[in-house]
Nucleic acid binder design. Structure first.
Lengths: 232, 232
DNA sequence: CGCAAGATTGAAGGACATCAAAGGGCGTGG
DNA sequence: CCACGCCCTTTGATGTCCTTCAATCTTGCG
């Protein structure tokens, strides 16, 4: 990947977008670039937060293994998103595990380096605050959903969100950009793969989606949005 | 309330704790002090975020009314906590409503003033980032709970959290510091008042809690913690 | 072709939501 | 001071959404 390619990636990252030139160059200097194949674990729940990562390309899943043995997906992250940023800023161990869902390009900074940069350029800290705030809002939203909505609604919401984040145009409609098993979806919405299978099948028969092995394509946004809003 | 009293409140607020002297004085200067009775609405979901509030004394509930008409409690906040801080920092409308659960003392700053202060003293922004990060982690935790744990577990967790936050020593044990109806608890854990009533009644018979009208006292922490962990 | 991983489907059971109704506290006003 | 009424709480009955278990089917790949 070229230098200018990296610059382009960074420019559209919420953490560094719109930075003035000199600070931007400093950030660029300090960065490490690496590529990892799908299924790589970037860090484990409990690891020390020694580096700040920004996702350049690909999709990363952030998840927790709960005491009962049930995995829960906290975030699905796409290009530009920061990974484990809160833990780095707060200097605490990562509270969750990050796994590459697809092949990924990662931009990373040693935690100490990131601190220096934020110290030198307070703008970055403001950006970080804004970014963490946005993610917090998303969490609040998902918490409310989880508290009040039924599974079908939550599945609809999750798929629409994923389509917006990582959607690709496919012949049948908008295809989710990451390979998603029924189990994966279940871990996002907090249910089991059987329910997801039934719901998806039902939607497929009604022509709202096309499903396949590790594949979901949204054909009709409107009805899905209605389900997300009204529950059917 | 005396000047020194306010100072003391502010010193133990996560947003301003440990600030160097001169900046601290500036913060103190810019602050507005006011008292509000229980049930006052501090701001509504959708209001412009024109002031940053730190809770001096009392308890405030932050909640959302969902499309279906079900209210969901996002946060129960105690002394020192910032209220609606994320919206102020991000300059977006409040995503939730804040209601005083008890009589409260509020310390507030006009949003523009808060921005100035953060601009002048980057330490505050660092503190804010840390604080928002901590709250984010709490949300992640509650999201995971909501996704995987059953109601009884969630109630146990909620009560233990509230006891830690606002617990008072009572003759029978630790009393939750705010008047809580079964409905209120239901809105925190995402269920209905009937289930809460049954669970609490059951616990009362087993001697784990003493319940009353708008009142919950925790008598035995250990078994409740076991329920929170293991689900029974 | 045969295996492995994913997906579907059915049946049974449980946890929870919902509805209905009755039983306490507590303040207010007579 | 008592009684009334309101709000909170309890409790039972009922239904349903979802989980769980078991078995079969499909798909892609070596």
């Amino acid at each position: 990947m070229s230098e200018s390619g990296v610059r382009e990636l960074l420019v559209q990252s919420p953490l560094f977008a719109g930075l003035p030139q000199p600070s931007f160059d400093d950030v660029l200097q300090a960065l490490n670039l690496r590529m990892v194949p799908a299924k790589t674990v970037l860090f484990h729940q409990g690891d020390a937060a020694t580096e700040l990562i920004v996702l350049g390309k690909g999709i990363v899943k952030v998840w927790q293994m709960r005491a009962g043995g049930d995995p829960v997906t906290i975030h699905m992250l796409g290009p530009g998103d920061a990974i484990g940023a809160v833990a780095v800023f707060r200097q605490i161990p990562f509270p969750a595990t990050a796994t590459a869902v697809t092949d990924c390009i990662l931009l990373s900074w040693a935690a100490t380096r990131a601190d220096e940069l934020m110290e030198r350029y307070p703008v970055i800290r403001a950006k970080a605050l804004d970014y963490v705030g946005r993610r917090t809002e998303e969490l609040v939203h998902r918490l409310s959903e989880m508290a009040t909505e039924q599974v079908e609604q939550r599945i609809a919401r999750a798929l629409l969100r994923l389509a917006d984040q990582t959607g690709r145009v496919a012949p049948e409609g908008i295809e989710i950009g990451s390979p998603l098993s029924r189990q994966d979806i279940a871990e996002i919405v907090g249910t089991d793969l059987y329910v997801v299978s039934r719901v998806l099948r039902n939607w497929a028969l009604r022509g709202l989606v096309v499903t396949g092995r590790l594949r979901v394509v949204l054909c009709n946004r409107q009805p899905l949005e209605r389900i997300a809003r009204e529950g059917s």
